[in-house]
Design a binder for these strands. Sequence first.
DNA 1: TTTTGCATTTTTGAATGCAAAATTTGGAAT
DNA 2: ATTCCAAATTTTGCATTCAAAAATGCAAAA
Lengths: 221, 221
Amino acid sequence: MLHEEVVGRIRDILLDGEIPPGARIPERELCERLDISRTPLREALKVLAAEGLVQLLPHRGSRAAKLTDKDMRDLFEVCQGLEALAGELACERITDADIAEIAAAHAAMVQHYREGDLIQYYRGNRAIHEGIVNAAGNPVLSGLYASVTARIRRARYVTPMTSQRWAFAVSEHEAILNALQRRDGAGLSHILRAHLRHKREEVLQAGFAETDTNELTLKIA
Amino acid sequence: MLHEEVVGRIRDILLDGEIPPGARIPERELCERLDISRTPLREALKVLAAEGLVQLLPHRGSRAAKLTDKDMRDLFEVCQGLEALAGELACERITDADIAEIAAAHAAMVQHYREGDLIQYYRGNRAIHEGIVNAAGNPVLSGLYASVTARIRRARYVTPMTSQRWAFAVSEHEAILNALQRRDGAGLSHILRAHLRHKREEVLQAGFAETDTNELTLKIA
DNA sequence: TTTTGCATTTTTGAATGCAAAATTTGGAAT
DNA sequence: ATTCCAAATTTTGCATTCAAAAATGCAAAA
């Protein structure tokens, strides 16, 4: 198994919440599961720590990073900035074909909304945002965006989605597609910022504060 | 020696150009120099690869990453976006004390300019930009900024600095400080973007294209 | 002289072993 | 019964070792 694959596998385990935020990462167990020795596992953990997904405590092992409200706010803030930048650049550089692709993804997402399929809706949503970012044609930007959204991702799904909010989000997406089709960089940038601001408010109001497993057991006891 | 320290030491070696872009990273040599074994060294190299400073070639070891013109353009583009965001946020949040600190750094930098001390000028320049970014009060943003500027840094010093350009850069910095003191977020953001755009033009016009050592030896031969 | 094929050497990537540190356990004293 | 302390166990971090892959050198053939 290649180094990057090990990193990816562990990243997925963390993002799926299989190892909950704040929980210790059991080296030996993961080694057996991935069928590798501790050396490559620890290399991967160090990389994930640099990404902010893992917290290393010297001589005390590693834990799945726990995000505070402040962390989440900061991540959204940066995410807003990155998407806003991507929106402007995308409008300058995107091809008609790529616009068509994003329009198709948008239509599919709206269909999932009509069907009330939240999971598929989120998947489509993500594809659109990623499509815009990638349309900026800047791999550095795409890379940072991927890193930031990965850390945010878990929170997105814990947010309760009311029908009113959902409808509003879809309307925002209509505006996003419209600005993109008009290649209105400033407009797109503005809408994206607002869209993310709203999402952030939802997540933070939902009382996002990752309690680590120890605290949780204490509360239960 | 702590893991983070190893990463830092190697990062410095790369940023100082001691191992030139494209050159192989001699594991054994570095091990002896840092007085560590290959295990922690390789952990550090993997982290630096994730940061984009090192390129890993499976079964062929690691090389100092070589930046193309496109890479440099992309990095500057993202850097612009990050600084613009930081500028807006800083104006909302910065304290009078922090403004005073940046003003002092600015004065010192101008003094270095008058004395013609380019090295000290660059150092002061960097302190100001970092000060603004940190004043945004967003560690995620500060982290990404550090990572992006690290990769750009080497190029900055290869740019020939004419007295005209230098004077203009200083005048831009006057405007930056002014906007910050007025807490004019939009204005600061705008000036920072222009400032970086100019810097980027200089760097790219200087014909930045990192030739790796092999190509170099071929040219010499 | 240049090129090709093979053996040797070097280097890489990963497993193992070992010392140091931290955690847990068990028992004694209060 | 509870608290505190020391011994035992586990876990961490790193050096070493080992197998596989790549690079190098050399001789033979074109």
